[in-house]
Amino acid sequence: MSIDPATDASTDRITDRVTGRVTGTRLATHDLSLGYDDRTVVDHVTTRVPDGAVTVVVGANACGKSTLLRGLARLLRPGTGQVLLDGKSIHGIPTKEVARTLGLLPQNPVAPKGVTVVDLVGRGRAPHQGRFQRWGAADEAAVARALEVTGTLDLADRVVDELSGGQRQRVWIAMALAQETDLLLLDEPTTYLDVAHQVEVLDLLHDLNATRGTTVVMVLHELNLAARYADHLVAMADGRIVAEGPPREVITQERVSEVFGMQCLVVEDPVSGTPLVVPIGRHHSRRPTLVANGATA
């Protein structure tokens, strides 16, 4: 099944605007609209996920970023357009086959009662197990690797319910890793974690991308962490993509105020050199003109 020329043209144009290092794309959307009942949440979005990069989707609450991610993971049927995986409509591919290519960690996953870490992570192997061919050495090795990478090997025996928030999140990521997919989608993997654990989880995902070349797509709330960890940043507002590209290009004062409706300063992150958004707010400013005029300096 091939893409019609119009699709190619439109996605190419977007790619050009993106980054130089994009070499190919296995996951893309074309004119994709998504919604619940009769409410449209994602509105005719065409985009490509660059292979081998960390893509982060940001935007204000209810801008459609989680919905877009769920759409990419074939959890929602498109109202218009389609999601393309390796050039084919994702809904035309058997779901188990998709699961061998594309892993998903939803927002706030709930572990069944009493399940141990090793059991939960082992369930990530489901797409690789045939109906009659059960648990094998390859599965064992994959689970062990996933536990090792996420630093949860020591917890293997523990019951997931009884872990701390940070540990639990690492276990869930381990489950997604055990799936051994080239693409990994994560919906706010850092929710409910303290700053240290947020950085820990994001570092882990970065390592994964660097060492295994896993394409990572995630939705993040924290703009500055997004700017630091993203190779490719996608900014959404009102169900549309407002801008995408390297964080340095996407994060500007004008755009932050457009996307988040917030006045801010954008400075250089002293640690990473990536853009750092400093909200202005109505108080606290050492330079009163900033508050009065907005960030025009």
Partner: peptide
């Protein structure tokens, strides 16, 4: 017995199960 395997996925919740290829 044949379907029991996917029960281990469905009990993880709709989204996670779908992500793991359970239809």
């Amino acid at each position: 017995a044949l379907l029991a395997g996917s029960l281990r996925l469905t009990e993880l919740g709709d989204d996670t199960a779908a992500g793991l290829g359970s239809s």
